[in-house]
Design a protein around this nucleic acid. Structure first.
Lengths: 247, 247
DNA sequence: GCCATGCCAAATGTGCACATTTTTATAAAG
DNA sequence: CTTTATAAAAATGTGCACATTTGGCATGGC
């Protein structure tokens, strides 16, 4: 009697790790794309309804995102999209700057022609996107340049740390808008590569530092601040065509 | 089967966030102390029985530790204490080395007498512990020195990253045993402070680098490798005096 | 003797039914 | 009209009952 089956009549405890991952990726993607405005409440029941999964599954995903510090979890009060302070953003940029100084210091000891060649090729891509006027590609490639630098070291811990920093700064673009007007100047990236080729640590670090300070100086507060109330259904509209109840 | 301790029909959903934290801290502490050998299986039912809480609570904690990469989670097969490779350990040390190079680069721009004074005081503590022969204090203070360095920058992201690295290397002590014979030489720490006082970036980084390479060279494989099967009850014996079934 | 196969106990994964807490709506008082 | 108190509604947190999967063990065939 107590065995209430699901609507699809199949098993209830059916293991489906892919479903977890799909929901996680969907929400994470929405966060990184900036579709979810800062301060938006992410309640479990509506999300379960939208994605057509149980509430527990949504719950697990939200708590995971909270553990990764991508969502702000408050006990008994659910999940919200974090509203980073200007100091928070500066902190992330500074961390990136400090990290890259260390990376460059280590990198000059291991530069070889292949690396310089790869970086030069990347610079060409960046210039192509810039002259083409493709803003989206420019932003993407600009971030990828720094990823290339750290991955040249082949250290998983450092790569993960940088990925964490970049993903966090992505979210921040929706509040403060850095570098939408003019992204990382390709020339500055080129100067870093040039210093690397010359094995000049001090110059590489100095250029990198100026580069980051340049970007940081463009940060400014964008205080339209829609405090809450965003239509989640609209945000996740095209993500999952699963049926949901009549609105 | 293990009789669920809490069967009082009245308050089932009683909120108790402190209980979560207690279990989390207990397992984390056991991990950091090296009481849990690498490769040990952490099954949910016995842990629930030991701590006297429901299985779901254990479950949540284990998954949290898995998300923090302190436990290795395999779908449908539970949690195990990770068995880090020698390359993993080297990776952590290298990351610390690279990070500290960046930290020192940034730090020489903001050194003041107060900082030098604090670091000097710390060095005195280290020396005292060393001459006293207090090995535990020496290890602790030796790690704390590097924490002091990064915290001098006042950047939360960087501090968190270093804490992550340190906690991971703590776990690794149980497999490879670095620096138990002779921990970070105080003289090397002193040389770093001296270079900072002189505002000599290159020297600070060089000394720091040599320091880390020195420690890394002491790593060696300790392959006794008890493959599994550790008595969890004994490990968590003194942690939680809560009543459990037999005993 | 050794590998393959089937069965059974144990462990993990998940939906659901509550309890608890928070938030919203409504009514009353100043 | 604003503010406060109270009740209703919604959302979050948790234990439990299953389903599913895994691992071990015995049996049978080569």
């Amino acid at each position: 009697m107590a065995t209430q089956r699901r609507r699809n009549g199949k098993g209830i405890g059916k293991a489906n790790p892919a479903e977890d991952e799909a929901v996680y990726q969907a929400i994470l993607h929405a966060l990184l794309e900036g579709k979810l405005k800062a301060g938006t409440k992410l309640a479990e029941p509506p999300l379960a309804d939208i994605f057509g999964v149980s509430r527990e599954r949504i719950r697990k995903v939200l708590h995971r995102l909270g553990a990764e510090r991508r969502l702000e979890m408050i006990p008994n009060r659910g999940a919200r999209v974090p509203r980073p302070t200007l100091d928070d953003v500066r902190s992330v940029y500074e961390a990136h700057r400090v990290l890259e100084a260390g990376v460059l210091t280590q990198l000059v000891r291991h530069v070889d022609d292949a690396l310089i060649e790869r970086l030069t090729a990347h610079l060409a891509e960046e210039r192509a996107a810039a002259t083409r006027g493709d803003r989206a590609a420019s932003v993407r490639l600009s971030g990828a340049f720094h990823v290339h630098l750290v991955e040249a070291l082949g250290n998983a811990e450092l790569s993960r740390f940088l990925a964490d920093l970049l993903s966090r700064s992505s979210v921040m673009v929706s509040v403060y808008e850095p570098a939408t007007d003019s992204i990382c100047a390709v020339d500055e990236h080129g100067a870093i590569v040039e210093a690397l080729r010359a094995r000049d640590v001090a110059r590489a670090i100095a250029v990198s530092r100026e580069h980051f300070l340049h970007v940081e100086s463009r940060l400014h507060l964008d205080d339209d601040a829609a405090p809450a109330g965003q239509d989640l259904t609209a945000v996740f509209a095209a993500v999952k065509p699963k049926r949901r109840k009549g609105r």
